[in-house]
Amino acid sequence: MNFILKDITAVTLSERGILERSSILVKDGIISEVGDFEKLKALLPGAEVIDGGGKIALPGFINAHTHLYSSLARGMPIKGAPSSFREILELIWWKLDRVLEPEDIYLSALVGLIDAVRCGVTSLIDHHASPNYIRGSLDLIERAVREVGLRAVLSYEVTDRNGKKGALEGIEENVRFARKIKDDDKIRASFGLHASFTLSTETLKLCREAESDLNIGFHIHVAEGIEDLEDSLKKYGMRTVERLDREGVLKDRSLLIHTVHIDESEIDIIEKRGVSTVHNPSSNMNNAVGYPPLPAMLQRGLRVGLGTDGYTQHVLGEMRAAIVLMRHATGNPS
């Protein structure tokens, strides 16, 4: 696939900055040059020319945390009025994921991925759960990813909420898929965990042992709702990040999602371990879980990604939400 996208404003996110009245040369499906149209035309005579009409061209976005199966929740009625984050899980998400069948998994992934493309997302990190169809579930999502043509990191959510058998099958699915996909250049695996409050010490030990030979890191929700923190304090006498660190979850390739209810001591641990976190502003507001100590994390130089938590695939909209929410939460308009 060779073509020149002519007459665009290229936002390079590099030292070249923003290039007005520019063009992009795509050679063999890869962006090879950005610059003057006539110069690019000389590099590849005969290439198809597409008029950009003066529009803005941005690099593809990365959605650092999503749930593709949440495509099925749009317009889904809720029986009852949730008054806490745990009730949201029980009334919506834990009901939905338990009824997912193979066709549901594949089609919901396909819908979510197409939506992602429409929103300019070219890479995403998905966290999947389907307790009654675990083995092979990641293959169905992989199939959809390849058909749409994105890059992705896939994982299956290990949890104790569906019993020991379900937890063991979740571990096996992560390991199986990671080994299958280890040499792929477009799709990778992470080791999915739900959250501290749904994972026993025994299960986390099994996960840690299973991941040790893979070195793919963990993808886990951390202190999203206050329930996660309260559970850790009550059962283990320590805060959520402290507990996960003790259990060996905080590896350099791990992703800590949300980190809403964490304090300065936990930020110290995250910084020491070199772990990445992911901010999900619209989801946090929708679930009324609170605001993470984002300014402190950024000031400390922590790696903070941006995710949608399946609430949407509109990463550019999440950027705006993140800015506005930070101003509101800190009382600082700048």
Rank of each mutant, 00 (worst) to 15 (best):
M1C: 05
N2C: 10
F3M: 08
F3V: 09
L5H: 05
D7F: 02
A10L: 14
V11Y: 05
T12K: 01
E15T: 09
G17M: 06
L19W: 02
R21F: 05
S23D: 07
I24C: 02
V26W: 00
D28C: 01
I30F: 02
G35M: 10
D36P: 06
K39V: 08
K41R: 15
L43D: 06
L43C: 12
L44D: 05
G46K: 12
G52Y: 00
G54K: 08
A57Y: 05
F61P: 00
I62S: 08
H67M: 09
H67E: 00
H67P: 00
L68F: 00
S70R: 03
A73V: 09
R74S: 08
P77S: 04
P77D: 02
E87R: 06
I88Q: 03
E90H: 12
I92H: 03
I92F: 03
W93M: 04
W94C: 03
W94A: 02
W94R: 11
R98Q: 11
L107W: 03
L110T: 02
G112C: 09
L113R: 04
R118E: 08
T122K: 04
D126E: 12
P131H: 00
N132Q: 12
N132V: 05
R151A: 05
R151W: 05
V153I: 14
S155C: 15
V158K: 02
L168S: 13
G170M: 11
I171H: 02
I171Q: 01
E172H: 05
E173G: 11
A178I: 12
K180M: 10
K180F: 03
D185F: 06
K186T: 13
L193C: 10
L193K: 03
L199D: 08
E202D: 15
C207Q: 06
E211S: 11
S212H: 10
D213M: 01
N215W: 14
H219N: 13
I220G: 11
G225Q: 06
I226C: 04
E227H: 01
L229T: 10
K234V: 00
K235W: 03
Y236K: 12
G237H: 06
H261P: 05
D263W: 06
S265Y: 02
K272H: 13
G274L: 08
G274D: 06
V275S: 06
T277Q: 11
N280I: 00
P281D: 14
P281C: 11
P281E: 13
S282R: 15
M285C: 09
N287W: 10
V289W: 08
G290L: 07
Y291F: 13
L298I: 15
Q299N: 15
Q299G: 15
R300K: 15
R300L: 07
L306E: 13
T308C: 07
G310Q: 08
G310L: 08
Y311C: 09
T312A: 07
G317Q: 05
A321V: 02
A321N: 13
I323G: 04
V324F: 13
V324N: 14
L325S: 14
G331K: 10
P333I: 13
